[in-house]
Design a protein around this nucleic acid. Structure first.
Lengths: 153, 153
DNA sequence: GGCTTACTACTCGGATACTGCTTGTCCGAGTTCAGGGGG
DNA sequence: CCCCCTGAACTCGGACAAGCAGTATCCGAGTAGTAAGCC
């Protein structure tokens, strides 16, 4: 899985901790020692998914488009990964000797269906958790907010 | 996700349909028009995971090590993927400005924990389905067994 | 003094290289089978 | 006729390249703020 998902999740949480005005990608990258340009790329994908809004010009940057309560892990994963599924069926059942001898398939591939069921469970578990839940977890260490705010000032 | 998982699943099902003696990787590859050498590589990983047993020499090949009832989708995925997890936490919370200002972390990363929960749901859904379930699905088209046997004779 | 205007600096945005892993290929080690020779 | 031995062919097994997606980088387009100039 793409490393950018981790970057995006932490960055979205940081954006919420700061609150208010837009924050530049350089500043956000510096907070976790990331590559500014590449984080910018991820933020662009989050902007396309309308999870953040981008503000051009000086004093510009990115800010959250919605409260964390309505942003699920699935939203972030799909924004970064681009909606590609974990298991991609290439329909090999239709190739080779077996494919030639078999009649054209009328129903879905059973292997694909089974893998999809599992993937569906994953997606459901992702969509059941919002970023606000993670924020609540982080707030159990009270210093966190303070540290993040002073690191992004 | 690796394409080899799909290859392995179909090949394991074919091995069961044939039943009995070992089948060479070349023959199994021909059944679906796959690269013989690469399929052989996947079968070796299945052998290491003790899902199949390899028989060297002429008339050798691979045969199932267990009945399909006790082989789950998770077994196959882990055999091919090698136990790597979908989301790998790189602990970026300990890097950069935030990492320097934060005290050494005492608990697990909340982002990682949330992603792990979702991944756990995926793995559980995978382990809840055995290859015998997929075989049952395939047997709803009665011709299937016959086609596979004649393709691998 | 107030307004307009040009400039500068800073931001996003997309086009451009690089790297690691999945994918694919090749050749060697080992084993079974077959055939020939000897008892 | 039966047994042993040698050879060959076929299999797995791991070491060796190629292609591609993820990773990382750079520079241009656009905008807000600023400062100077003009009315």
């Amino acid at each position: 899985m793409a490393k950018g998902v981790e970057w995006a999740l932490h960055t979205l949480l940081n954006l919420d901790m700061i609150g208010g005005g837009p924050v530049g990608s350089g500043q956000l990258a510096e907070a976790h020692g990331l590559s500014p340009s590449y984080l910018n790329k991820q933020l662009q994908q989050l902007a396309r998914a309308e999870l953040v809004v981008s503000v051009p010009g000086p004093r510009g940057g990115f800010r959250l488009a919605k409260p964390l309560e309505v942003i699920t892990l699935l939203d972030v994963v799909e924004a970064i990964e681009g909606g590609t599924q974990l298991f991609h069926c290439t329909e090999i059942r239709c190739c080779g000797k077996i494919g030639e001898l078999s009649p054209p398939p009328t129903d879905a591939c059973a292997v694909n269906a089974a893998m999809r069921r599992a993937e569906q469970a994953w997606r459901q578990a992702l969509s059941a958790q919002s970023l606000a839940d993670i924020r609540a977890e982080l707030d159990r260490t009270p210093m966190t907010r303070q540290v993040i705010r002073s690191a992004l000032n």
